[in-house]
């Protein structure tokens, strides 16, 4: 790769940083959708994670604690969705959209006193944990721990879904909830857990934006990252490693086009900005042409134990 004026090392390093929030949110949503639930509230859970993580980090001066509370906040918010959808059988699409609106509102309210405050904790955050990581190169191995945690989560999700009993059960629930129920699996309980996991991951992704990538709190700062995460899940046809690929592709093209511009390369910016979305559409067309789209069969359907 010999791009004029751009160091590939820096490019890939910043690509990984810019892709991490959407990767975290996308891998969480993959699990949720694998269990047969469509949660469109990713954006809302991300932004709540962003604000709660930021508030905690500022008050405790510990970003690690910020990430933990962000995950808890995202999971808590998702329980509202889970309760409405699983117990009160509300429409998943509408409830998910509602969750996004609620999340944006709550975060604006909580974040008001924290606007313009700097997160003083970032420096202290990187160094001690980085020293535990074997430095194999500035490109891949000199990031903050969250980048590695996000990849580990992807690996764990892939392993659990593919090779463990609980993964098999989760997929069964997502493919055919009536059959899973007939076999005695607790459909509601499994989905509830999956939704909470998705919420926690989205919260982490949001906190990564407010604590590492930007780092500050600004109202509405996720600016659509949650929707991109939802697109990546489909792009990845519900496969964890492809979600990683998709997130790095999206993040990569964003960073690449900004870097190309900064380096003064004459490229049509508009086309490059639009390319991730075009690629997603292309992938969807290919997937549907193949006939096997990989979507969980019970995705978005309501489950009632009496059926």
């Amino acid at each position: 790769m010999d791009l004029p004026g751009i160091s590939p090392v820096l490019l890939i390093a910043s690509l990984m940083v810019s892709a991490t929030p959407i990767l975290l949110a996308a891998i969480g949503e993959t699990v949720v959708e694998k269990s047969g639930v469509l949660n469109l509230g990713v954006e809302g859970m991300m932004i709540v994670g962003a604000v709660v993580g930021f508030i905690t980090a500022v008050n405790t001066t510990s970003p690690a604690l910020g990430f933990v509370t962000a995950a808890i906040a995202g999971a808590l918010l998702s329980t509202i969705f889970a309760t409405l959808v699983l117990f009160f059988k509300s429409n998943q699409v509408a409830t998910g959209l509602g969750l996004t609106l609620v999340g944006l509102g709550i975060s604006a309210l909580l974040g008001k006193p924290y606007e313009g405050i700097k997160s003083p904790t970032l420096q202290a955050f990187e160094i001690p944990v980085l020293s535990d990581i074997p430095v194999l190169g500035p490109m891949l191995f000199s990031h903050d721990p969250m980048v590695y945690i996000s990849i580990l989560i992807v690996a764990a999700v892939w392993f659990v879904l593919k090779y463990t009993r609980i993964g098999l059960v989760l997929r069964a629930v997502g493919e055919n909830h009536d059959a899973a129920h007939a076999l005695g699996y607790k459909v509601i309980r499994i989905r509830f857990m999956a939704i909470m996991f998705g919420g926690a991951c989205a919260g982490l992704g949001g906190a990564y934006i407010s604590l590492v990538r930007v780092p500050q709190w600004t109202e509405g700062m996720t600016a659509g990252a949650g929707w991109i995460a939802l697109a990546i899940v489909v792009f990845a046809s519900w496969k964890p490693w492809r979600a990683l690929l998709g997130a790095y592709l999206f993040g990569g093209i964003t960073v690449l086009q900004l870097n190309l511009q900064a380096a003064g390369v004459a490229i049509p910016v508009e086309y490059l900005s639009m390319s991730p979305f075009l690629i997603t559409i292309l992938v969807l067309v290919i997937i549907s042409a193949k006939g096997n789209h990989g979507a969980p069969a019970s995705l978005g359907r309501l489950f009632h134990a009496s059926n």
């Binding site: 004026g5 160091s7 820096l10 910043s14 810019s18 929030p21 934006i209 990538r213 930007v214 500050q216 600004t218 509405g220 700062m221 996720t222 600016a223 659509g224 990252a225 964003t254 960073v255 900004l258 870097n259 511009q261 900064a262 380096a263």
Partner: peptide
Amino acid sequence: TWFDPAKEADAAKALIEQ
């Protein structure tokens, strides 16, 4: 974009790297 903190930060970083 007029407002996208993450993208604005990325743009600033890209310029600083240059």
